[in-house]
Structures are given as C-alpha cells and as structure tokens.
Write a protein that binds this DNA or RNA. Structure first.
Length: 415
RNA sequence: GGCCCGGUCGUCUAGCGGUUCAGGACGCCGCCCUCUCAAGGCGGAGGUCGCCGGUUCGAAUCCGGUCCGGGCUACCA
C-alpha cells in the first residue's frame, strides 16, 4: 500500500542528513514531519538519509519504542539509506553503541585543554542557582569555580576518586557565534552568555549536546534539519565543533506544530502519534502529503503533492518560519482525495482490516476479490478514512435482515 | 531575569518595494447536477498583512520601537 522510493546509490555523497529520534515514546506528528523533510531533502539532492537512534537516556529509552518508531517510519514510506536494520559505513546507528567514540572525543578535548573537570555537586549547583534567581540579575550560568583549578589539584582530586563532570572551556575571547540557518537566515548569539556546559556526566556518559555533535561529525552529516527547539542549542554545539576542530554543518530549523488551541501539540489534543493515524484509517500517502505542506509549499498553489513530486522538488528555502496549527479537517479532505484516486484493487488491499471488522470474511475477500472491488465505486466518494467503513458498509454483511435507518425511512420511503 | 526566534483570511499558505500585492487550498454559505448522502461544477462571505512610528514618489515587503506568542537558559533529549 505504501510505495517507497527505490534505494538508489547516492549521486551526491556530500549531502548527508539524519533523523535522530529518541525512543522514549511513539513517533509523533512533529517528529514525522522532521523525518519527512530530511528524507525529502536527501532524495531531492541525491544525498543520503540516515536514521540514528538517540537512546542515551536509559531511564526512558526502550527497545520496544525503537521498534515502534521504525515501524511507523516504514509505514510512512520513509526509507532510510543507513541506520538500524540496513546498516551502513558510519555505524553503529544507536548512541548506546557509540560510547567509545564519545570517550575518544573527550580524550581529544582533554589533550587540547578544551575541557576541565568540575567537582561541584549537583546539589551545590542547584542551591547556587536558586539563590541567584532570588536576586536582581537572575541566574547567569555556571560560575566557573572549577575552571581555574590548577592541573595538579584537579589531577589529585580525580585520583582521589572525587566525582566530577567534564565541562567545555568556552574561550574567553570568542566573538559572537554566528551561523546561516537554511530556513531562518543569519542568526547570531553573543558568546559571553554561553555557559561552560557539561559534556560528560559524572558517570562517564555524554550529555545530549556532546553526543549529537560527535555523532554528526563521525557520520559526516552535512545538513542538520531538526526541530525549532534546538535553535538555542546550536551555538553551544558550534562551540563543541570548534573545540573538536571539525567543520560545522549547515543547520535548518523547523517551526513547531501546534494544536487547534495554538498550544504545542500534545496528548490532550487527541491523536498525536503516527500509528494512531494509521489505526484510524488514514492513508500514509495522505499523511505524508499533509505533513509536508505543514511548513513547506511547492508553489503556494498546489496542495495534492505525491511522493515523486515531493522528493523531486523539496527545498529548504521554501520552508516557513512560522509555527503551524494541525488542522485535522484538511487531513480528512486530503485523505478522501487519495482514496478516490487509489483505484479498486489498492482500495481492497488497504481496506481489508476494516472490511473484516465490518463483518466480511478474510477467506471470502481472498476468494472473490472482484466482489469487493465492486464496493469501491459505491463508497470511494463518501469515504474520508477507512475507519468509516464498518459504519458505511456494514449492512453488506448483515445477511438476510437489514435494519433501516429511521430518519431515512421517514424522509424518503414513507413518501 | 538573560539570550534567541516568530506574527498575512477561522486553519495551511503565496507574496520577497511598484504589471489584481492581497492569490491558492481546507472549512463555511448559496446555486447547479441528483431518488438520499456524497463526489463534481459554478459563485460568495472571510485578511486595513499584530500595533506605532520612520525611510521612499510608492511597503505586507526595508529600518526602529512596542505588544503578543514560542524556544533555550538541567549531570532531559
């Protein structure tokens, strides 16, 4: 039911993008849109689309969630060139398997003096922050108490087994951190407000910002296309690229997807995961088309855009900066369009699960497909989602007794 | 508090100083088609481009300010 683009070798090896979900839940609408943009960009550029699992949070990451995300991506038809289950030369593709590379990066940073050990406890830090927020200026970041410890003292405390994290030594004379975002344009952050952020926790694990930069460097990512919520993380990450002496990729940030109340899309808005939409009988072609248009446009006129058109014409310079409200009524309409265009055979194939709940027998569908294909012209033009099938077609499977709708009887038959 | 980003019909958007620049789509309303409901066709109502100044012969488009909304500011990602 979902056709994916054939896995052709990349014609443009320099273009490498990645979608990097953390398996802490289902693939939600916002993540799906990010994945679609990465995928479409890679296909349009003849580049490589990589899938990477960011499972550094052992508390919330599960293997089951990883499988759910993979399944959702497959259902959407977003085939990845490198990643889980397909492999690739830049693997492994989950962060828990890349610990050695983070350790190596830390070692490089230590040798260069770009990081320093910090012995402040979390409790002490929390207390300082709370105190600072009481006063006028507010909290201004880590106060750098450990930044100027003598190398001898630092070494002695480490050898004595004192718990410590590793912080980035942000250069004092660093000018503004500027970059040209592919959707937002030129953006600049003053470097003096940058915190000496933690790169490696006291348990030796890398923090998010550190792991992401290491992975993106090692996987030779050329364009980082991700959610808007990372815009403010970008200058921090650029500092890490610089400390590591690695080229900085192009960044492209995507605005947020909001619920009908203009608030960030969340569970209380109802369905927010891709698989919920699948289960409610939406066609993945329609979902992809709809999501692609939530923040991007082909020409401002065209609304029905199939996969081929999307993967040929997608471009970052036509992505909007403005947050978008997820409007389900338009999705319904769009899904109806796809149903009307899919044809009888494809319809029966896709509709089978719902025909079964309507009362049809699997064996019967297999035995006489033509009979079911004949149903298509009957319902295609009044169907917007497959989960309406039991209601609209259930009478076909009632047998000899047919119940008439009272309202319809009064309106028509009694005349 | 500090830093950063955004603001065009109810919603998704086009527009990137001047030939309908306010266009397209969903939704909504009406008409046509029609044994119902849809689908389809035609037409209509919806935006003084958040607000205030400025630049200019001319601004939704450039500049400043302001308001509102959002993000980051964690040993979360």
């Amino acid at each position: 039911m979902t056709q994916t683009t054939p896995a052709t070798p990349a014609q443009n090896p320099a273009i490498r993008v990645r979608f990097a979900p953390s398996p802490t839940g289902q693939l939600h609408i916002g993540g799906a849109r990010t994945a679609i943009y990465n995928w479409a960009f890679a296909r349009a550029q003849g580049g490589t689309f990589i899938l990477r699992i960011e499972d550094t949070d052992p508390e919330r990451s599960t293997e089951e969630n990883t499988q759910v995300i993979l399944r959702a991506l497959q259902w959407l038809g977003l085939d990845w060139d490198e990643g889980p289950s397909v492999g690739g030369s830049a693997g492994p593709y989950s962060q828990t398997q890349r610990q050695d590379s983070y350790a190596a990066a830390l070692e490089q940073l230590r040798a260069a003096g770009a990081v320093y050990p910090c012995f402040c406890t979390k409790e002490a830090l929390d207390a300082k922050r709370a105190a600072a927020e009481e006063h006028d200026g507010g909290y201004a970041g880590y106060d750098r108490t450990c930044r100027d410890l003598s190398p001898e003292e630092a070494r002695a405390r480490i050898e004595a087994g004192q718990a410590h994290v590793w912080r980035l030594r942000v250069p004092n004379d660093h000018g503004a951190i500027a970059f040209d975002d592919a959707v937002y344009g030129p953006i600049s952050f003053p470097a003096n407000v940058m915190d000496d952020m933690i790169l490696v926790r006291s348990d030796g694990s890398p923090t998010y910002n550190f792991a992401v930069v290491c992975d993106d460097i090692n996987m030779r990512i050329s364009h980082v296309i991700r959610g808007d919520d990372h815009l403010s993380n970008t200058p921090r990450q650029i500092l890490i690229y610089e400390a590591l002496g690695a080229p900085v990729p192009t960044f492209a940030h995507l605005s947020m997807i909001l619920g009908p109340d203009n608030k960030k899309l969340s569970k209380r808005h109802g369905a927010t995961s891709v698989e919920e939409y699948r289960d409610r009988g939406y066609l993945s072609d329609a979902l992809v088309n709809f999501l692609a248009l939530l923040g991007w446009s082909l020409d401002g006129e065209t609304t029905i855009i199939d996969r081929a058109t999307l993967t040929e014409n997608f471009s970052l310079d036509r992505v909007t900066k403005k947050d978008a409200v997820f409007d389900e009524t338009k999705l319904d309409w769009m899904c109806g369009v796809y149903i009307r265009e899919m044809g009888a055979a494809a319809w029966v194939r896709a509709a089978t699960p719902w025909l079964l709940t309507a009362g049809a027998q699997a064996a019967d569908i297999a035995a006489q497909p033509a009979r079911y294909e004949a149903l298509y012209p009957l319902v295609a033009e009044r169907l917007t989602r497959f989960d309406e099938i039991p209601e609209k077609l259930g009478y076909m499977f009632w047998g000899a007794t047919v119940q008439l709708d009272e309202a319809s009887v009064n309106k028509i038959l009694k005349k």
